[in-house]
Design a binder for these strands. Structure first.
Lengths: 366, 366
DNA sequence: GTGAAAGCGCTAACAC
DNA sequence: GTGTTAGCGCTTTCAC
């Protein structure tokens, strides 16, 4: 434990033992408190002593120890992020957005995957708690089991998914509205029987999207046929594939499908291919969430795009604000989704199939 | 600073102040050392006292403080990972693989993006260092500037990319060989002029892939024409798109193209579409790195697939071994790539276009 | 087996 | 402005 201090007399940096603030202070002939103030950039230090400290620090090759700092100050300068699966491009972009804003403020991002499993989510939250992350951002697995998230005094923001009754900052997109716009697009094209390939409704955002689906149908005076809602057993491509096949192999096959996530979209697209069904001739497809490949496939897929990066950035900004002491009432921020008409549903009004970012055919969905 | 300790007499968990080991020890009527041994699961504790401590701990709602533990023990139980961009599916899968193995051992993953910028990489490494991560995994931006990685005594593993002269564990795929196999595939199809769309050769893995390209040509007795190597200005889709267009708009257009990364592949694919060029009729395309969408597009793309998840897992295992005290000589682990013949190059020997995982047409490339 | 005591390297009152 | 002095909550000798 008590490693020998590096008090080498040579002008080169110390070698073996980590050099501490005390070493720097000694060499600069100032108190440890002054050295701390100089290096930490707080409190008052005269220009003269500051110079001496800085010089001593880099002669010695001093590196601050954030662990010691965290223990003494109570702040770790870290934020934890729990997502379903970092391999999902949606979450990857979300993480990117969060990282961008928190790193810019000197914070480090800690990452964990829940795999949409409540126990893994709980373990991740617990691990972050014992690590004393200053703030926590979670895309919760479910809206019905949030006891582990209920930690008064510990900054928390929910992202992508909200939880009823949990009064914390929540950053989502307009899920229900986006889904409604999607389904209305299909309705406007004349479809009356619209199938759905979806992740579990346990996932809060998904349940909102299903709500949007139902509300669109009801708005058109149509009944909701639960048999047309194919729920995947897992949020994976193969889960989506299986659900899509089950839906599309029915004798009374639907001519239009709405997928509630990018994973389901990939599964459904592959199912359509395997069944030899063409879009939009055999089946029209509209998807929630946009991805790079949706514009590369033939035909390009009509989607409800989400401002994912901005979702992450906004969540990052909220957590920084809370960590910084913001005590204002919890905010529920809803970012708008956007209908991007491409070719998988056939074309309406002769609108040109567009790519993400193209203005003409991209109309706000919320 | 001196927050009041929770010494509530009620049987319910304490409220305000964090309960510490001292509180637990007091309540269990044992010394703090014994409480520490019981909770930390080390040293000797009698069954009887252990029970008392455990009971006191959960009556009080005790949570360990990993920061204090880290300061005292010198181990943070964290590992840092620096990748180019977590939004790149390749890195996302890599991160996933690392997370899987380190989390299983109770470690937490810290993440940073370098954006293929050496200064950002340096800052990330420095941030991880002051945070005292137990080990660091880096996919280095370049092979020519590695001073910041040279920290004797601090476990480091390089992943995806190696650095000459840095004698540390390195986990990569067989980049040169994979690229050679790709180009030989094109050669076997009769192509003699083969274009390349590539990221910067500064990136170590990319330079290896270019080496494989050159070696395949030379092996066939062909000269390398640098004019056919289109280098993107940035590792982004638009960078790849621009490079691909430049290459494909030449009067003496090549009939075969090799892309050196998934990002370049996406850019090239879009360029082909925009130029109205069909695969494989107008241009044959073979890509390094496989992605979900390469099997969804028409035609499915022939690729050199990498065991990405396994790359991450292996890197994770190496860092855990080093952190655990493994002092054996540095290992350079090379995972094999695999040629997966699909349809973007035309078909050879009547081989059936295959999907990732399909055995028949998937032949090991290394 | 168990407890007392000395830190880990830093921050933060507080007095000067 | 600067130094002194207590800790932050845990681990870890070292006696007993």
């Amino acid at each position: 434990m008590s490693a020998p201090k590096a008090t080498s007399q040579s002008e080169t940096a110390a070698r073996r033992a980590p050099v501490t603030l005390r070493d720097v202070a000694r060499r600069a002939n100032v108190s440890q408190a002054t050295a701390a103030r100089a290096m930490g950039g707080y409190g008052y230090v005269s220009a003269n002593r500051r110079r001496r400290v800085e010089q001593a620090a880099d002669e010695l090759g001093y590196r601050s120890n954030d662990i010691a700092r965290a223990l003494a100050s109570g702040s770790t300068k870290t934020v934890g992020l729990v997502v379903g699966d970092i391999e999902n491009p949606f979450f990857a972009a979300l993480a990117r957005g969060v990282a961008d804003v928190v790193e810019a403020e000197g914070y480090t991002l800690l990452l964990a995957n829940s795999d949409e499993d409540i126990e893994r989510e709980q373990r991740a939250v617990e691990a972050f708690r014992t690590r004393l992350v200053d703030g926590l951002i979670v895309a919760p697995v479910t809206g019905s089991d949030s006891a582990h998230l209920h930690q008064p005094g510990w900054p928390l923001v929910l992202v992508d998914r909200s939880i009823r009754g949990l009064d914390v900052d929540t950053v989502t997109v307009t899920n229900a509205r986006g889904a409604r716009v999607a389904v209305e697009h299909l309705l406007a094209l004349g479809h009356r029987r619209i199938g759905v390939v979806t992740d579990s409704a346990e996932i809060p955002s998904i349940s909102q999207r299903l709500r949007g689906y139902r509300s669109a149908l009801r708005g058109a005076g149509l009944a909701v046929d639960d048999a047309l809602i194919a729920v995947a057993e897992s949020s994976t491509l193969s889960g989506g594939y299986a659900a899509a096949r089950a839906l599309l192999e029915r004798a009374d096959r639907v001519r239009a499908v709405f997928t509630t996530s990018n994973v389901m979209t990939a599964g459904a697209t592959r199912a359509l291919q395997d069944l030899g069904l063409k879009m939009p001739a055999d089946v029209a497809l509209i998807a929630f969430d946009d991805l790079e490949w949706t514009t590369i496939v033939e035909p390009p897929i009509t989607v409800i795009a989400q401002p994912v990066l901005e979702l992450g950035r906004t969540a990052g900004r909220r957590i920084l604000a809370r960590v910084g002491g913001d005590n204002s009432p919890a905010q529920r921020i809803r970012l708008p989704t956007q209908l991007i008409v491409r070719a998988s549903c056939g074309e309406r009004d002769g609108a040109v199939p567009a790519r993400a970012g193209d203005a003409p055919a991209a109309v706000p969905a919320a």
